[in-house]
Design a protein around this nucleic acid. Sequence first.
DNA 1: CTGTTAGCGCATTCAC
DNA 2: GTGAATGCGCTAACAG
Lengths: 333, 333
Amino acid sequence: MLAKELNLAISTVSKALRDSHEVKAETKTKVWDLAKKLNYQPNAFAAGLRAQKSKTIAVIFPELANSFFSLAIKGIEEVARGKGYHVLIYPTHECKEQEISFAYRLMDGRVDGLMISLSRGTTNYDHLIDLNQKVPMILFDRISDDIDILKVTTNDYESAFIATQHLIENGCNKILYLEALKFTSAGKFRLQGHIDALEEFNLSYNKQLIIDCDQSDQENYYHIKHGLVSNKPQGILSSIEKLATLCYNACKELNLTIPNDVKIVSFSNLETAHLWSPPLTTITQPAFEIGKEAAKLLFQLLDKKQIDLKDENKILKSAFIKRGSSAVCETFT
Amino acid sequence: MLAKELNLAISTVSKALRDSHEVKAETKTKVWDLAKKLNYQPNAFAAGLRAQKSKTIAVIFPELANSFFSLAIKGIEEVARGKGYHVLIYPTHECKEQEISFAYRLMDGRVDGLMISLSRGTTNYDHLIDLNQKVPMILFDRISDDIDILKVTTNDYESAFIATQHLIENGCNKILYLEALKFTSAGKFRLQGHIDALEEFNLSYNKQLIIDCDQSDQENYYHIKHGLVSNKPQGILSSIEKLATLCYNACKELNLTIPNDVKIVSFSNLETAHLWSPPLTTITQPAFEIGKEAAKLLFQLLDKKQIDLKDENKILKSAFIKRGSSAVCETFT
DNA sequence: CTGTTAGCGCATTCAC
DNA sequence: GTGAATGCGCTAACAG
């Protein structure tokens, strides 16, 4: 408050700044003018301490240099900013210890709420349970069914199912599945959706057609090429875009034309799919929307303070499939 | 502090937690045990208010869903975390008003320092000058020479010069330049480096060979294709990776083989270049390193408090060129 | 070794 | 309308 001492009492200035009705208009303008001149902003820590709230949320997530999480955080930030909140970031780099460390650090009253996307190694959730007792939180994307906290995620199962169906209906009897992110909920759901779709349409499920691509680019490329040569699939379902790129190159090396010889469908976050020639058929994860929805849910929690929407919005799902820029089918909810 | 009242005085607990030498070991362990049991963390706002520091830095930058800034922020976060600092993010979406709004909001003592990458429209720097009087800051990547604040950026001029030289030395007498980010310092330096290299090697500078690609993908594609057809260049220098992708597709449509008919060199942040076939020759901007260096510089400022390294580290530059995964030439400083 | 006190800057309560 | 007093939770100076 300081420099205001030039004339008035501390409390009067405080009231003036908050446009209280019990301050003369003349006094107010005088205060406002000086405040503007000095670029005065009430100290956030003092105000926060007083009000017992930080106007800040945090996001704990696996990886910054990742288009999915970048977009999700973009969505989170937009919602938060709309509410006048600040956003702290805590990338774990898929490291469980880092995640735990962040969780305990965030019990210091620095944030009013937080959003978490689990790191790769996280199998024990004590830190989240502890944290959740002190600050409301939402899980997004990298979730676990073993923990009773509100969640927002994509409908990976249904998306993979529909994508597989799409390939089958376009004449693919043999489909190569490029598996990635085995350790995540999304990775598991995608594979399961694919497998169930195969069964639904009476196609034999063959383990050889599932290529494990959680290796280096070189190894993945080798395995994909091998899979193409030895199985001669008519269709390919890639669980992440990067593998589709590798597969695309492998097809070219093998002189397989797309989509005549082989059709490719891929999960995708990057918006480069339409740059391909021919364009890739994609299942776009609405990362931005997930961030937004998850953040909205968090603010519902913050507003209603513990009101039991525990049973309401448990899981919010979405995804859609498109080829280049024209939609093949949409399942956005 | 609260629950500790079960036995001791508030200040004794405070001292015990900070492992003060003037507290009995027995008392300490008693305090520590309870603290652990209750997952106690000293309130950050109270401590911050007391100490007059926030242990927090902020980053104001144009775009989150952008591989360059994602990587830069990753670098910033790593350095900050190493120092025990928290990181707030403020994406402006290239909106000048947003940038100004953030700047004034951050005068509330919430942060000890900050890093800024200018938004597209920013031409007036009053908000930064005002802000810089209250909190130390560093400019990175999207800088301006019109403001006297420490800066960290890439050596775009030299990189474009070397890339052009590289093409010329590989037999390209006619080079198409795909221009983007005209409104940024980087965009201007890249073009100038290219032009100066042409002159240095006595190649005629022809405006027709500079394609303005700050449009939509469709328009850019059209202009690039037109440029290829009408000029028949042997080399292409793309100022961003996305344009290189478009150009690549255009070449294929025109049945131009790479690199036989035409050689492509591109600035790049994405690590997808090596996925191409044939691999793209790239000038990789070390986004991660820029973030790290800029953050280190900020912490120097914070530590030394205003010590006049104003004249020291003014600009830190770096970049290197490689083809696929093998380096063509490195100029990392 | 432990406890008492004061003050960081703000917003609220109550007195003038 | 305005001002003085209080406390948010913490730490550091000082007293016991």
